[in-house]
Nucleic acid binder design. Structure first.
Length: 608
RNA sequence: UCCCCGGUAGUGUAAUGGUAACACAACGGCCUUUGGAGCCGUAUUUCCUGGUUCGAGUCCAGGCCGGGGAGCCA
């Protein structure tokens, strides 16, 4: 975004950054190398944003690097569409902030080998494609590309063979059901596979045969030989390779065996020279296995270490790939980038600046405590950001006609309006004013409730940047609906005028009827009516907000015809708005990013 | 039931043995040509019990409560 820059947040403190700091001070590592390792089986969401901000934040603050790596070890669940959306989302989120810390590799390269050790160098920061240029996303075949666990399949295969050679892994012929049975339970030890002690040579031979496609899916697996009696179930001879005759989105039909997460992840980290491997709490019990594999191989370079933090759970939404897919497939929303979704592409389309997402990630902190984060914190960050950068404009979303009876029919003048009181450098603009206007229906009440200081019969209100008007007459149609207000203006009350200083309680926005341009305006609200949609096992579909989207045709001041997708707008007294991708010249479409804080609605609620 | 990890105002987060603080929310007030923004104010907040210590949110022990863990998912 090219307008008013937002002050970057100062670096936060948390237990992970404390560890990084200590590791750097002790000389354990020269600089931190983190990674963001999504599986391409869905779109990224606000929870991933927290992780991205943490990993790239560390790289940014401590002079390190963060690799984008696709954890693509399960071809049956992954799709190339997700790879592409993830690249776009990551680049958007770190653009202008930490994009110089984004680790890529030279296109088409695989890890370098030396004495059985594998190392995948990263492209230096200076070589990165600027993230701010759309269409330049590095993908396979370009000069640089993200990391893919699938690029390490040869290396991982070699490491698995080494593990078998060391007598620390074996090929197991038990069926999936048998393996399940023999794993035992949390309070009951498992039993050894009868293939556990077969010879190293036999395991080696069978593993090669597995790789060569000699067995059907599920016929055999490779297992680490650890301890079937361990209280940690992940140490009970966990599977590290399985047979899957499936085509992979990156490697095609080259492989019919694929490594499992626990084996692939720690070694991918090692291969890339990751120092701090940060993941969410549910992987805590996997850490002993992560360390076991790396130690069992007696690797020559410094080892990565895994640290876990609590994932983000915001109120009034859901962040679960499986459930987001459901909302998309059931057409509850219009797609992955529906502005009501907490997906990164949804936030972007809604008009939320990346800097607001980052600020949010900083504000909520990083701990190991399973917390629920009030979405109001995010909303605050969005308003704070947009308040500084948004250009003020006048727009009426639910129009009510007002005729200024003491003005001639051909009255026309242009009034000065301030573009952004928070940023005077944005200057002023002219807004046309004439005899017939539109005001917001809500800004008039025939029978005003207490403390209502907008327009009412016989009452006065100020038109922003224009005159003080008095409502003389309410005109209704045959059904009793108010269709027009007839008012008189205090012609000396314009800015700079003799009576401009008169104390009038209310100021409302307006547009000139004759000069207004129309726009489709999509009014988005929270997707759910409950703070915790799935509390106590409730089905989230039963608490969908039926008013999460309202589409209106708004009357906008004419300058809005030049609105751009890059800029952000505040429709005065209403909220923040951004041009939608559906917008075309002559057919404006705005998304409401978020409403302004609304003190009146609270008063109204209290009054019942 | 077994293993692992947590518990600080309403919600989050800080305080790294030395006066418990910050943000959001809520509620007052000031200001305002956005009922926005801004400014000022409002809270017997450390799960319980015991121990160590001159001193404990922090260290130790036991308990209570919550979360995670038995995919050929990640």
């Amino acid at each position: 975004m090219s307008n008013a820059p937002v002050t970057p947040p100062s670096a936060p403190n948390d237990f992970i950054r404390d560890i990084v700091k200590a590791d750097l001070e002790s000389g354990k590592y020269k600089s931190p190398v983190t990674r963001f390792p999504p599986e391409p089986n869905g779109y990224l969401h606000i929870g991933h944003a927290k992780s991205i901000c943490l990993n790239f934040g560390i790289a940014h603050e401590f002079g390190g690097r963060c690799n984008l790596r696709f954890d693509d070890t399960n071809p049956t669940k992954e799709e190339i569409e997700y790879v592409e959306s993830i690249i776009a989302d990551v680049k958007w989120l770190i653009a202008g902030w930490a994009d110089d810390r984004l680790g890529y590799k030279a296109a088409g390269t695989v890890p370098e080998t030396k004495d059985g050790d594998f190392y995948q160098p990263a492209v230096v920061a200076a070589g990165f494609t600027p993230a701010s240029q759309p269409g330049n996303a590095p993908v396979k075949g370009a000069a640089t590309e993200p990391f893919y666990a699938s690029d390490y399949f040869d290396a991982l295969y070699a490491y698995a063979i080494e593990l078998i050679r060391r007598g620390k892994a074996y090929v197991c012929d038990h069926t999936a059901d048998e393996v399940d049975q023999m794993r035992g339970a949390p309070d009951r030890p498992g039993e050894n596979s009868k293939y556990r002690d077969r010879s190293i040579e036999e395991s080696l031979k069978l593993f090669v045969a597995m790789k060569n496609g000699e067995f059907p899916d599920g016929a055999r697996t490779v297992r680490a030989k650890i301890d079937m009696a361990s209280p940690n179930i992940w140490l009970r001879d966990p599977l590290i390779y399985r047979i899957r005759h499936a085509s992979h989105h990156q490697t095609g039909d080259k492989w019919c065996i694929y490594p499992l997460y626990d084996f692939a992840h720690c070694l991918s980290d090692y291969i890339e020279g990751i120092t701090h491997s940060i993941c969410t709490l549910e992987f805590e019990v996997h850490r002993p296995l992560y360390d076991w594999i790396l130690n069992a191989l007696e690797l020559p370079r410094p080892l990565p270490h895994q640290y876990e933090f609590a994932k983000l759970i915001p109120t009034y939404t859901i962040v679960s790939k499986r459930k987001l897919i459901q909302l998309v497939n059931d057409q509850v929303v219009a797609g992955w980038d529906d502005p009501r979704l907490p997906t990164i592409s949804g936030l972007r389309r809604r008009g939320i600046p990346a800097s607001a997402v980052r600020q949010f990630a900083y504000n909520i902190g990083v701990t190991k405590y399973n917390s629920v984060t009030d979405i109001a914190v995010f909303e605050h960050c969005i308003r704070e950001d947009l308040n500084k950068r948004a250009l003020r404009r006048l727009a009426v979303l639910h129009p009510l006609k007002v005729v200024i009876t003491n003005l001639p029919a051909d009255h026309f003048e242009e009034l000065d309006a301030i573009n952004n009181p928070e940023d005077v450098s944005t200057g002023k603009r002219k807004v046309p004013f004439s005899r017939e206007l539109y005001i917001e229906q809500d800004d008039f009440a025939e029978v005003p409730p207490p403390k209502f200081f907008r327009l009412k019969p016989g009452g006065e209100v100020r038109l922003k940047y224009a005159y003080i008007i008095k409502c003389d007459e309410v005109i209704k149609d045959s059904s009793g609906k108010i269709v027009e207000l007839r008012c008189t203006a205090d012609l000396d009350s314009k800015t700079g005028g003799a009576t401009s200083g008169r104390k009038i309680k209310g100021t409302i926005h307006w547009v000139s009827a004759q000069h207004a341009i129309e726009a489709e305006v999509r009014l988005y609200d929270r997707l759910f009516t409950e703070a915790e949609p799935e509390k106590d096992g409730r089905d989230f579909k039963t608490v969908l907000n039926p008013h999460s989207l309202e589409v209106v045709t708004g009357k906008c001041e004419p300058s809005l015809k030049d609105a751009t997708a890059e800029l952000r707008y505040q429709f005065e007294r209403l909220g923040y708005f951004a041009l939608d991708a559906d917008s075309k010249p002559g057919k404006l479409v705005f998304n409401r990013t978020i409403i302004l804080k609304d003190a009146w609605s609270k008063i109204e609620k209290k009054q019942g």
